[in-house]
Design a protein around this nucleic acid. Sequence first.
DNA 1: GTACGTTTAAAACGAGTGTTTGAGTTGTGG
DNA 2: CCACAACTCAAACACTCGTTTTAAACGTAC
Lengths: 235, 235
Amino acid sequence: MEPVKSSSVSSDAHPEPKYSETATRILDAAEGLFVELGLEATSLRQITQQAGVNLAAVNYHFRSKDALFEAVFARRFAPWARECLCELDALEANVASGKAALDVEAVVMCYVRPALALSKDPSRGGAVFVRLFSRVLVENHRQLRETLSREWGHLVTRYSAALGRALPRLSSEEVAWRLHLGFSVMFHAFAGNDILKLFGRSAVSARDPDLIVKHMVPFVVAGMSAAANGKPAAG
Amino acid sequence: MEPVKSSSVSSDAHPEPKYSETATRILDAAEGLFVELGLEATSLRQITQQAGVNLAAVNYHFRSKDALFEAVFARRFAPWARECLCELDALEANVASGKAALDVEAVVMCYVRPALALSKDPSRGGAVFVRLFSRVLVENHRQLRETLSREWGHLVTRYSAALGRALPRLSSEEVAWRLHLGFSVMFHAFAGNDILKLFGRSAVSARDPDLIVKHMVPFVVAGMSAAANGKPAAG
DNA sequence: GTACGTTTAAAACGAGTGTTTGAGTTGTGG
DNA sequence: CCACAACTCAAACACTCGTTTTAAACGTAC
């Protein structure tokens, strides 16, 4: 009676849940509407109408609206997180074998490359998922806390360790701040959260992923590598 | 019959609308709930209950839920925008009279000082409003487009011109990108959007405004002042 | 006192929500 | 053929939403 899949983001090997065509259509429609209108403002009837399926199908394939939201998110998040980990593993392997230097830019690129690949691949959600991710961050959805915090926390720990090795003269507290600030830029830049635009047109075409990377990486690398407390803050 | 105030953010001089005590209590309650739950997820009944007023009062003092949201936002935004403009005016006056140098940090501080003052002043919404602002940015609320775009656009033009003078060797397109990226960090840092935390605990106590400024300003100044395309992006 | 504009109170309205039900339809294996 | 899943469908459920309506209380001027 109930085909409800287990909704862990990824437990061990590759428990990637396979969805039926109807379920996939629901996920696709929901993904687009959630990012455009928000979770609360999107009704199941809008989703099923856009997906061309019956209303009850969403409660059949998924358990509830909240569970659907979780599934929408988990479907995209897990592969992307795996890719980030692969980048970090590759970097550390290359550093260990002397084939690469562990500098700030190398760490930054371990995040930029998966985000760039994701942004350019519509079959994995493309930029839509990145925007959904940023909404989740700001809106603080409770239902994703447990699902996310474990995997995400692991990733953060890895990035933090790598950046700490790239910035050996900084205290661990300062490394944490650099990571916090640097990831803030990268994350919101990929999500297209253009504060300068704010409903108007911007001087910056902030939606082309390659352009974003081109201008963003030097900015982030310079910020992360800034001299420790070169100047007092409040002048 | 209808005490509905004009809801322009600020037309000319100081048309600061004065609200009755009931209306103020509604605004305060709505502000907190909107930022905590989001616009759609917050019901008028929650607002009026927390404010200790009757349900119909919100449709009497304001016209509708959307108009209330606009009023909540406008009440905080206008004074803050004025403060930003004052900072820019003061900087340019000091530069003109030779009392100050127009460097990147000076421009950054023209944004940081008002944001810091606002964050530390609960009587003007404090950090709550900054978080509301960031929700508005990400959620792309239609009802604020017209209200905001004019004033905000003016502010952006001023900051852009100032930064352009502080970075004379950069093209105007690159200046726009620096402004975009720098404001992204500052804005989300003040809003407390901690991507590293993401529901878990963070290594960074990202909610103390003074600490934020201390670590953020060197980061942003270094990023904005980075050498133009010092390194190719994708390796 | 009466009259009036202002503000609050409680109840009701119609529309839309997430969810459930139960019957109907398909496809596959014995 | 039948049985048994997997799945779809239309209708209904109980509920909450924003908004409106109606009546009542308040202060002030005549």
